[in-house]
C-alpha cells in the first residue's frame, strides 16, 4: 500500500512537463536504439516476462515502473544477459544482444547498476570506477583520467581512497553509477539508484541523472519506486505488471491509464 500512496502522491503532486526534456535529441549525430522485441523469460514454469517490448533511444530517459514482482529487474537482467530468454530478441543498433554473455553485452555498450549494490568491497573507490574503464579497454592513463573526472563530477573525489565496504549506502550507490559511467555506455540501466538515499541525496542524484542523456548522449532506463523522482526525470514511462506491459507513454498518459491505477491501487479504483 505504501507504493500506491507514493504513486497517488505523484499523480497529484507532479503535473506538467518533466524536467530535462530531450531538446537536444534532434542534434544527436546518430541516434541508436535499444530495442526489446516480444521478450519472454521463464523461471521453471513461472513466466516472469511475457512478450514485453520496449524501446530506448540514446538521449532519452525511460522509467520502468510496476508493482513488486512485476518483472522490472528481470527485464534488465534479460537485456544484460544475466538471464536467458525463452523467446524474443534484443538489439542495440545493429548488434543483437540476445544470446550474448553479460561480458559481451557490456562490451557492446550496455552498462547497468544492481538493485542490491555490488561494489568491489576491498578495493578503493578509485579502483572500483577505474576497473570499469579498464574492462572496456581504455588505456591506463585514460582510465585514470576518466575515473578522476567522474569522481569529481559525482562528488566522490574526497572518498577516492576509501574502500568500497566503508562507504555509506548513498555513496555506494553513487560509486556504482560512476562505475557504470566509466564504461562510457550507450545505454545505462539503473536498478533502483535512489533506494536507501535520503531526500537531499535523491535530489542531488536527480540532477546528476537528468544531465546524463544530454551531456553523454546515452539512453537511460531507470527503475525506481520513488515516483517523484521517476515523474520528474523520465521522458516516457513503461509500466509492467505480472510480467506484462500494461501501459507506456508519457507521464500524463500513464497516470490516467486505468490499468495502471488498477495495478497500483487495486480493482475498482479506476472507476472511483
Amino acid at each position: 500500500m505504501a507504493q500506491a500512496g507514493i504513486l497517488a502522491e505523484a499523480l497529484i503532486g507532479h503535473s506538467g512537463r518533466p524536467q530535462g526534456r530531450p531538446h537536444h535529441l534532434g542534434k544527436v549525430m546518430s541516434e541508436t536504439r535499444l530495442a526489446v522485441n516480444a521478450v519472454s523469460v521463464e523461471f521453471t514454469g513461472l513466466r516472469a516476462l511475457d512478450h514485453v517490448s520496449l524501446s530506448l533511444a540514446t538521449g532519452e530517459v525511460v522509467g520502468l515502473i510496476g508493482p513488486n514482482g512485476s518483472g522490472k529487474t528481470t527485464l534488465i537482467n534479460a537485456i544484460t544477459g544475466q538471464v536467458k530468454l525463452a523467446s524474443g530478441t534484443i538489439t542495440a543498433g545493429s548488434t543483437t544482444l540476445s544470446g550474448l554473455s553479460p561480458r559481451e553485452v557490456a562490451l557492446a555498450g550496455v552498462s547497468r547498476s544492481f538493485q542490491i549494490v555490488r561494489l568491489f568491497n576491498t578495493m578503493t573507490v578509485f579502483e572500483n570506477v577505474e576497473a570499469a574503464a579498464l574492462a572496456k579497454g581504455a588505456s591506463r592513463t585514460i582510465a585514470a583520467q576518466r575515473t578522476q573526472n567522474l569522481l569529481d563530477e559525482l562528488g566522490l573525489a574526497a572518498k577516492a581512497d576509501e574502500l568500497g565496504e566503508n562507504l555509506s549506502y548513498g555513496d555506494k550507490r553513487r560509486v556504482e553509477i560512476a562505475r557504470a559511467l566509466a564504461a562510457e555506455p550507450l545505454f545505462l540501466l539503473l536498478d533502483e539508484p535512489a533506494a536507501g538515499m535520503n531526500d537531499a541525496e535523491t535530489e542531488a542524484l536527480l540532477h546528476t541523472l537528468a544531465e546524463l542523456p544530454g551531456k553523454r548522449g546515452l539512453g537511460l532506463l531507470i527503475i525506481d519506486h520513488d515516483m517523484g523522482l521517476i515523474m520528474r526525470l523520465c521522458h516516457r514511462l513503461h509500466v509492467l505488471a505480472s510480467g506484462r506491459t500494461i501501459a507506456e507513454g508519457d507521464a500524463a498518459h500513464v497516470r490516467s491509464h486505468p490499468a495502471v491505477i488498477e495495478a497500483y491501487l487495486g480493482k475498482g479504483a479506476a472507476h472511483a
Binding site: 544475466q82 561480458r103 562490451l107 561494489l119 568491489f120 577505474e130 574492462a135 568500497g164
Partner: peptide, 24 residues
C-alpha cells in the same frame, strides 16, 4: 596492472565484474 585490477574486481564480485566486460 590492468589484469591485476580486473582480477581483483572479479574476486570481490564475479557478477559485477562480468557485467563490466571482464573476461574472468
Amino acid at each position: 596492472s590492468r589484469t591485476g585490477k580486473l582480477l581483483r574486481a572479479s574476486r570481490e564480485d564475479e557478477v559485477a565484474a562480468a557485467a563490466l566486460g571482464a573476461d574472468i
